[in-house]
Amino acid sequence: MRSQIVRIVVVSLMLLASHPSAAGEAQTNSLADETSGASAQGASTPGPQQAASSESRWQLGIALGYGLRTNPLVQSDDIPIIVDIDISWFGDHLFFDNGDLGLTFVDNEYVTTSLVGRINSDRVFFGRTNTKFVSVDLAGQPLSSTFEVSIPDRDYAGELGFELLADGRWGQLQLSAHHDVSGTHNGYDVEFDYGYGWRNQRFYVEPSFGLSFKNEDLNNYYWGVDADETNAALPEYTAGSGVNAFARLQFSYQISRNWSFSFVGEVERLNDEAAGSPIVEEQNIFGYFAGFGYRFR
């Protein structure tokens, strides 16, 4: 029943998106507003309208540097970051953005709303875990004998949801809600993200923060421990719903038309239900990356 509803919604949105007036008119209005506001000392200025029309649908870039993301799981390794590759394509309605697939059905001067399919990112921590033989449990209590402890494996989940983007002089806002459509965790999450950027020519600073609500099904799938995964060292655990919070600070310096240097630092606080799991060691996840980026223009 649920999959039928999802199918109907998807087909309806595709039909809506295929109507040229839905997004096209709004785009034209937006461009016209900007052109009328543009002025410059000097000769004929093409203005943003020409700049916008010449913008490639492709967005390609690569960054090389060094960074790290800590892994909150016990018996796990942090995640090193050496390369960042950006491959995106933005059509009038359809888009591909580094693994996310989207269908834009509203685009006006206030908001852009899309249907988005993506892969859940919580799985990333479970790819770098180790098996250990322990004589104390995860709480530090001695055990009667030695036990093998492995962090239970978790699968990637394919999710489908809606995303709303808005921006202005007040900053950038992103609201999204995604539901599992792959039958992996059968849960959903709702995310809020706000950022504000300052630019002074080549320098750019952007702090941002956000919240992410994860329902019980999602939270328990990734952070819970099922009865068949337990042993004397790894007790059963059921996680309820919770809200993750994160903050991020990005600094970048534009070296030339194509090259930039960037540093970004991020901290994410896992919700208490996830942090209380016996497989979780750290409630805060820290990340940073510094490197040189090249954007194809």
Partner: peptide, 24 residues
């Protein structure tokens, strides 16, 4: 003298993926 416009009229290009390595 080059003039480089750093943002876009397309809001989707400002989508955030919550990854620390997303700097481009």
């Amino acid at each position: 003298v080059e003039v480089l416009r750093m943002d876009s009229n397309d809001r989707r290009r400002k989508r955030r993926s919550r990854h620390v390595w997303d700097i481009l």
